[in-house]
């Protein structure tokens, strides 16, 4: 199957192609499609860019290693978001216990050589537009973890209530209730911005 043909396939068809024929190109296309949405989702949840990149890479590695555990009954997006969400929650709990945060986004030593990330997409780099984003992100970090996750999936990632219910394992009623509570907390914290 040519690259052009692979790009035309849906997510579910790509993962099946990867499962049955071990087509690495199919996997790479899936990585390309989901790396940015997952990075956005995980960053908004844990608030640390380096940590979120690591989690998204772990997610992709799990997809690669456990591709056969995917069943075509569920949507591929639901499956990959579930993996990423589980890893993000685990990392969040780990950080909460350790209470350690990355304070240097550029590595430990100035002389240390490493691949430079694309700074235009770095949310912690202060730009004019980034200041407001940072305020909102800080407010989002103060929202309870249980509410924050579903608010991000609904209002930032634009997923449906059904998809969020499958990803989190909660029933739809609980999902809606938590989303509203998360929004209420944010509204309280961001009321000064709305006055402007």
């Amino acid at each position: 199957m040519t690259d052009k043909n692979l790009n035309d396939l849906s997510d579910e068809e790509l993962i099946i192609e990867f499962q049955q024929n071990n087509t690495i190109k199919a996997f790479e296309i899936l990585v390309q499609r989901y790396k940015n949405p997952l990075t956005n989702y995980v960053f908004r949840f844990i608030g640390d860019y380096e940590g979120c990149v690591d989690i998204v890479q772990e997610t992709m590695i799990k997809v690669y290693r456990y591709k056969d555990s995917y069943s075509s009954i569920a949507k591929f997006s639901t499956w990959i978001y579930t993996i990423a969400g589980n890893l993000a929650r685990t990392e969040y709990q780990r950080r909460k216990r350790k209470k350690t945060f990355s304070i240097d986004a550029y590595g430990k030593e100035k002389d240390e050589t490493y691949d430079l990330p694309d700074e235009s997409y770095r949310p912690d780099v202060m730009t004019d537009s980034g200041i407001k984003d940072k305020i909102i992100q800080d407010a989002l970090q103060k929202v309870s973890k249980a509410y924050r996750e579903v608010v991000i999936l609904r209002d930032i990632q634009d997923l449906s209530y059904e998809e969020i219910s499958e990803i989190t394992g909660l029933n739809i009623g609980t999902v809606k209730s938590r989303i509203n509570r998360g929004r209420a907390q944010l509204q309280e914290m961001l009321k000064d911005i709305y006055k402007e």
Binding site: E28, V31, Q32, K35, N36, L38, T39, N40, F43, R44, Y49, C52, V53, V56, Q57, M60, I61, Y64, D115, P117, D118, Y121, P123, S129, G130, D133, I136, Q137, L140, V151, I152, D155, I156, N180, R183, A184, L186, Q187, L190, I193, Y194
Partner: peptide, 29 residues
């Protein structure tokens, strides 16, 4: 009721993966 909050969240800059994401990933795999 939460229109302002929803619009604020939707207006956030989309955070993207670094450029060397795929290369690092395949190296790890």
């Amino acid at each position: 009721k939460y229109k302002n909050v929803i619009n604020t969240l939707k207006g956030l800059t989309k955070v993207k993966a670094p450029r060397n994401f795929e290369a690092d990933l395949m190296r790890r795999i």
